[in-house]
Amino acid sequence: MLNFVEIKEQMKSDCIALTFKGNVTFELVDSIIIIISDKLDALEPNLNVRKKMYGILTECLQNLCNHTDDKGSLEIVDFDVKSVAISIKSTESCYFIETGNFVLNEKVAFLKKRIDEVNSKDKEGLKTLYNEILTNKVFSDKGGGGLGFIDIARKSGEKLDYLFENVNQSYSFFSFKIIINKK
């Protein structure tokens, strides 16, 4: 699982495509997606794999923008709580997208429950869950209203891997890992 120390180590290896640590904004997300898309267009011959990567990256990065918490006071020594980490690796058989960000401890149980629910479903179950939320007529401020993790899981076809590491009384570090097979 991703943590800042490991990222530093990973940056020394050849397989990593991109790591970013710093305040994430929607403008930055757009730039990252353009850079990665251009790279994928050149490297990945399969249209569906390229589109899955593009879609998952968009969901993950927009999630990071929407859900990175900042209570306004810097309570974590050495880290800005608005920092995020993004890592994309390519192996012979698959891509790995990993993200890391700080979340408020009070949100951990909710996020775990949501991801565990997604992980408990098979392909048909995910479609049913997706359509239940798609058709519930509940619009969040941002529009998606809880489709993000389901969409990522459907595109990936693999279980979502995650870890919450408690940092202090207010924050945990949320690591999230997605596998995209090169079929």
Partner: peptide, 12 residues
């Protein structure tokens, strides 16, 4: 060509 989950409910 592509839509995200934020768009899905609006498109429906």
């Amino acid at each position: 060509k592509y839509f995200n989950t934020s768009s899905a409910k609006c498109i429906l």
